[in-house]
Each structure stands twice: as C-alpha cells, then as structure tokens.
C-alpha cells in the first residue's frame, strides 16, 4: 500500500526527519510492499484540515501537536498542566508512561484517530522585549501563544494578554512591539534568533509540548494485524527517538542561550503558584485524566 503522512514542520525539523525515517523503516521491513510519502510544512493543509482528511481517510497518518488534539478532546489538556513535570527528563519519561498512553484510547471515538504514541518538542519558556525577572512581570504583557485553551488559560491566569499569532508573524511583531513577549521552546528561539528581538528570557520550563503520532481510524480498521503491528512498532520507535533527541538537546541549547548576550532569569513552580491554582480550577473539571497523570509524574519524580 502507498500511505501518506502529513505534518506541519518543515523538512529540516526533527519531527519531519523522524517521519522520513519511519517511512524508510516501513519500506524496508515490508520488503517494499508498503511505502509512505511524507508531506511536511502543512502541504496538505493545517492541522485542522489534516485531521479532517484523516477522518475521511484521505490522509493515512500524521504527526499532530497535542494542542490540536486538545481542542477536540479536552482531556488531552491534562498534558499541558503547568509544572506537571519539572524538567525535560521527566517529560520524556511521562510521555512514555502507561498513564499518558492510556489517554490515546479516547481518540478513536472522539476524533476518528488511532493514537500510536507520543513525541515532543522542548519545554516552554518565556521571552520578552522588556523586563522579565519573575512571573509578576508578565502582568499586562501581550504574549504570543499558539491558540489552544490550556495555554491560554495559563497565561490569562498570570495576568498576561495571550495573543494568538502564526509563527511566521512572530519575528516582525516582536520587532515593532505589536507583541511584548512570546511563549517558545529553546529550539525555535535558537533557529529563528528570536533573542535578537526579545533579549530577556525567563527559563521557566513551565509546560511540556507533546506531539502525537496518529493513524486514520478508517484506514486502521481495514489493516491486517501484522500491518498494524509493523506500523505501530516502527512509528513508536521513531517517536521515541524524537523524545530522546529533544531530551539530549535541551541542556546543550540552554548552555548555548546562556552563552549569548541576553538577560536570563529563572522561575519555578512556586513563582507561578497563583496562576497554577487558577488553571487547576478550570481544568480539573475538563481533564479527568489529570490525577492519573500526576500520579505517574510523582512516581517518575520519586524514582
């Protein structure tokens, strides 16, 4: 069979490379019987359009941000609980845990997708054009986010004015002061040199940014047991490799940023205590899996 896999990241990005590696692996293991064409950079449409195509079966697979999933299945918002994990190692372990994998069981009924496993990008940080020494400085700042509810609620709770904006618009918007601050990971900050336009950084590690590998439910139900097994194993291997990659990269990238001429402060869970409490009142209702994820996280932290 010829499969199609879509994702939003461009060819040089680690997610796209993982998709290519997955395609190569499936081709080899199936002895050329299956092939997977990768469509990077939202070539087949943005994530919402890709989800729709997955639902009709026009698209076979995709790597989607959990942000997109959480807009459909609110329980996935639990993965964005602020300080659910304290560092990238815990994030990596949590996303491979049974508690996280169990969340995927909701996908077929709620979204017509079969979730195979998680990948991720780096933890979220904050950068600002002007003073940013502690979360208190976020008060009243126009802060760019990708539009999904858990992160919006978090920043609303800090007193910032979260502003949705597509990534390509961010650099200019920072340059001319249309926004004051951004929520971003180390990787993107370095690639696009956002520090040239916003040189105050709060290393907060406040949130994970998971990605999920999915197969269309319509396609899945017609696959043979061995094909399912092949796709599942191979995709999981590559998704795990993405997690390992960002886990390894995070410390290096932090060092690199600390070596630059930018002002850096740090923030911890305690500094965000009020915002976290407010977030909790909203999301403990919507995200029923929060307790089980917290339990898994506690086990990881304890070990």
């Amino acid at each position: 069979r010829d499969f199609r896999l879509g994702l939003i990241t461009p060819p040089p990005h680690r997610w796209t490379q993982a998709a290519e590696a997955f395609a190569e692996d499936v081709k080899q293991k199936s002895g050329g019987e299956h092939s997977i064409a990768v469509f990077p950079s939202q070539q087949l449409g943005n994530e919402a359009q890709m989800v729709q195509q997955l639902q009709t079966g026009a698209l076979d697979m995709a790597f989607l941000t959990v942000a997109e999933i959480s807009n459909r299945v609110p329980d996935f918002g639990a993965l964005y609980a602020p300080y659910l994990v304290d560092n990238i190692d815990q994030a990596a372990a949590l996303l491979k845990s049974d508690a996280a994998i169990e969340l995927l069981d909701q996908l077929p009924a709620e979204a017509g997708l079969v979730g195979v496993g998680y990948g991720m990008a780096g933890l979220r940080q904050v950068m600002s054009r002007d003073q940013l020494e502690s979360p208190a400085d976020l008060e009243g700042k126009k802060l760019r986010i990708t539009p999904f509810e858990p992160i919006r609620d978090f920043y609303m709770a800090t007193g910032a004015a979260p502003t949705p904006m597509p990534l390509p618009a961010v650099y200019d918007a920072l340059a001319n002061g249309q926004i004051d601050a951004i929520d971003m990971d180390f990787d993107s900050i370095l690639i696009f040199k956002f520090y040239e336009r916003s040189d105050k950084m709060l290393i907060s590690n406040h949130m994970m940014f998971p990605m999920v590998g999915v197969v269309s439910g319509r396609i899945w139900k017609d696959l043979s047991a061995e094909d399912r097994e092949l796709l599942q194993t191979s995709m999981r291997t590559q998704l795990d490799a993405v997690i390992d990659h960002f886990q390894a990269l995070e410390k290096e990238q932090e060092m690199e940023l600390r070596g630059l001429d930018i002002t850096i402060h740090e923030a911890t869970k305690e500094d965000f205590a009020d915002a976290i409490a407010e977030w909790e009142t909203i999301w403990s209702e919507k995200a029923k899996s929060l307790p089980s994820l917290r339990k898994a996280a506690a086990e990881i932290k304890g070990s």
Partner: peptide, 18 residues
C-alpha cells in the same frame, strides 16, 4: 524587506528571518 514571503520562506527553511 520586510516581506511576508521571506518570513514564510525563513520558517520553511528554518533560517533566521533577519
């Protein structure tokens, strides 16, 4: 400059927009 197309190209190619 500035240019909407260049910004988009920068994002697609993962190179600094400036």
């Amino acid at each position: 400059p500035p240019s909407m197309l260049f910004v988009l190209f920068g994002v697609l190619a993962q190179i600094p927009i400036a």
